[in-house]
Write a protein that binds this DNA or RNA. Sequence first.
DNA 1: ATCTGTGAAGCCGTTCACAGCG
DNA 2: CGCTGTGAACGGCTTCACAGAT
Lengths: 245, 245
Amino acid sequence: MTPRQNRSRDRADRGIPEATVARLPVYLRALHSLQERGVATVSSEELAAAAGVNSAKLRKDLSHLGSYGTRGVGYEVEYLVYQISRELGLTQDWVVAIIGVGNLGRALAGYGGFASRGFRVAGLLDADEAIVGQEISGMTVENVDRLEDLIAERGVSIAVIATPAGAAQGVCDRVVAAGVTSVLNFAPVVLSVPDGVDVRKVDLSIELQILAFHEQRKAGGPGDYDRLAGDGPPGATQYVEAVEA
Amino acid sequence: MTPRQNRSRDRADRGIPEATVARLPVYLRALHSLQERGVATVSSEELAAAAGVNSAKLRKDLSHLGSYGTRGVGYEVEYLVYQISRELGLTQDWVVAIIGVGNLGRALAGYGGFASRGFRVAGLLDADEAIVGQEISGMTVENVDRLEDLIAERGVSIAVIATPAGAAQGVCDRVVAAGVTSVLNFAPVVLSVPDGVDVRKVDLSIELQILAFHEQRKAGGPGDYDRLAGDGPPGATQYVEAVEA
DNA sequence: ATCTGTGAAGCCGTTCACAGCG
DNA sequence: CGCTGTGAACGGCTTCACAGAT
């Protein structure tokens, strides 16, 4: 027991706090936007406003990367863009495979934010013969049977799982066995993975449920306009788990 | 200055910690899954495993809702499902409008997880005349010009923004002006909203960037298979902000 | 004078370990 | 005895406030 978390973040790791890492992409986006508007220099106050955080937090975050600002002046936009990009590993290309080409998989395949930020989609895979062979966003959907081969051949390092809930764990096991250690999961299930594999999860219905919680606290009921249907017997709520990603 | 955060979470709020709220939907899903398998009673240890958290955390989370377990036994699945559903406000129906019917909007419109959990999609809106009038998942796409009317007529309380980045803030301002206080934002921008409005953000490229950071820390480079292109001149990274959600 | 970088304090969330109920 | 519910300890993140660089 006592599963000593092997988390390699003791020190010497140049340890950037997780919370900071999660905000760096936001800063990066704000900086790109400034760059497009021709801004050369920015203060922590301005950048923080653009990123939606407070300026002390921004400064502390950036201080974990190094001293890239000039006191009395601010930060040079281009330089900071480079430093953050490098820290996040975006100066290299990452090869991504999308498994599951339903509605969501299609949306992801066509998502411009991937290609433009150092992520290259190198495969669209599906198990459905009716979908395999289709042309989606300039790529041909391939059979998921070839998953292991494709990962090895194309050097896939990030797998995006957009399958139905029932298929997700199986797909995950296969990509992990094939050597992938980073998974972005859109299926509404908790994936089990061995230590050393990172899973991030995006769950649309969870986000909505969190909003509903706060909304309920504000008004005490939906809408406030007029009461519409719903509100049936408490115990009788029908949950269908009809998720299809 | 000193923008005193008007965060209405001082007390009397029956204060459930935000971190707990974010996990309740996960517990709920695990419980539904148990329910389908006919399990009537579950221990904190079992439920925690199914939800991917540790059992002490689970017990503390549930303790914020009340004492719904039985010592020496565990939790009654059905009862706990009801209590969590009620706490999250899922015993009522929430009316959702999706603005922006591109690839992602389509995926969201067809997402089973909405309808099955107390969320009713009551409108698909787009600005593009070529899309307006189309039938998507059994609904006709309507013109975003009618946004305010639809919100009022149908009692929309949650707006899902799936527009391109450039349109998002404008749409957000309009839904907020029309009385909506909960927004789920898929556009890659930081939305400004007045106090009292909740915004949650889902950002695909941010998640990938966080994965890339950790992946970089493991291997020191993408793939580990062989080095492919990339790695160009540092200052020359091309960022296109070509996001179209 | 201005704005960054940072110790110190405070807050929040997690984990431990056990008291207490069934 | 088994398992929940919870005070207490701990650790991480945020915020404050100011020292220090330009």
